[in-house]
Structures are given as structure tokens and as C-alpha cells.
């Protein structure tokens, strides 16, 4: 059980795909937790890493930076990175940062697993 100031990240595996589901706001105080989980996930050399953002109601640029770093790690390890289920508010920061075309983003988790 994470403390209130820590981000809880739920892990799931499906046929070579690792799914990370962070739950809560991702800001400067919480993005380091997501970064640690993403690095650990790539250590297991998955074919695909899906980050399910349905439980994230807010993300700042430190969260976006963490995901850009995840994209760099995915390229190094020849894995596919897919983001899914972005809330409108989270999608907004990707648009402001003009990164909505940089990532593979799907509407649902099922689409992300098969994208």
C-alpha cells in the first residue's frame, strides 16, 4: 500500500506484454515512482509495454518527461511502448507539448495490447 504522497502502480502481464497502471495524479513529487517502475519493467525485456493512464486525472511536464524517457528506453530495447485511456486533461498536456503524435496512443487497453 503506497503512502498518500506516493503513486500506486499496478502491474499486469499478458502474453509478453507488461501493463503498468498508475493510479493518481502524476506530478513532480510522484513521477519518480513511475520512472522507477518503467525502468524495472524494461529490465524484464517485454515485447511491449502498455501504460494505462485511465487512473491518472492529472499529469504535469515531469510526468510527460518520464514517458519520453520511457519511449527512449523502449527504442533501446526494441520494445513497443503504447499509452492508453488518457483522460481529457492528461491528453491536453500532450497536445500543448505537441507530443500527441510522438507516442502511440490508443483509446482502450484492449486496443493498446493489440496495437
Amino acid at each position: 500500500m503506497a503512502s498518500p504522497n506516493e503513486l500506486e502502480v499496478v502491474w499486469e502481464s499478458r502474453d509478453g506484454t507488461t501493463i503498468l497502471k498508475p493510479d493518481g495524479d502524476i506530478d513532480l513529487s510522484r513521477s519518480p515512482t513511475l520512472r522507477t517502475d518503467i525502468r524495472r519493467a524494461f529490465d524484464d525485456k517485454p515485447k511491449r509495454l502498455v501504460i494505462d493512464l485511465s487512473g491518472v486525472s492529472y499529469m504535469d511536464s515531469s510526468g510527460v518527461a518520464t514517458l519520453v524517457e520511457a519511449m527512449q528506453l523502449s527504442r533501446k530495447s526494441n520494445a513497443k511502448l503504447v499509452l492508453c485511456s488518457l483522460t481529457d486533461r492528461v491528453h491536453s498536456i500532450f497536445e500543448i507539448a505537441r507530443l500527441d503524435q510522438f507516442f502511440t496512443i490508443t483509446t482502450t487497453l484492449d486496443e493498446a495490447v493489440s496495437a
Binding site: 511536464s61 510527460v64 518527461a65 527512449q72 498536456i93 500543448i96 507539448a97
Partner: peptide, 8 residues
């Protein structure tokens, strides 16, 4: 990664 804050 980083450097987006001022732009935002």
C-alpha cells in the same frame, strides 16, 4: 525528457 515547463 524535460524542458517543457516554460513552454507550457
Amino acid at each position: 525528457p524535460g524542458g517543457l515547463g516554460v513552454h507550457i
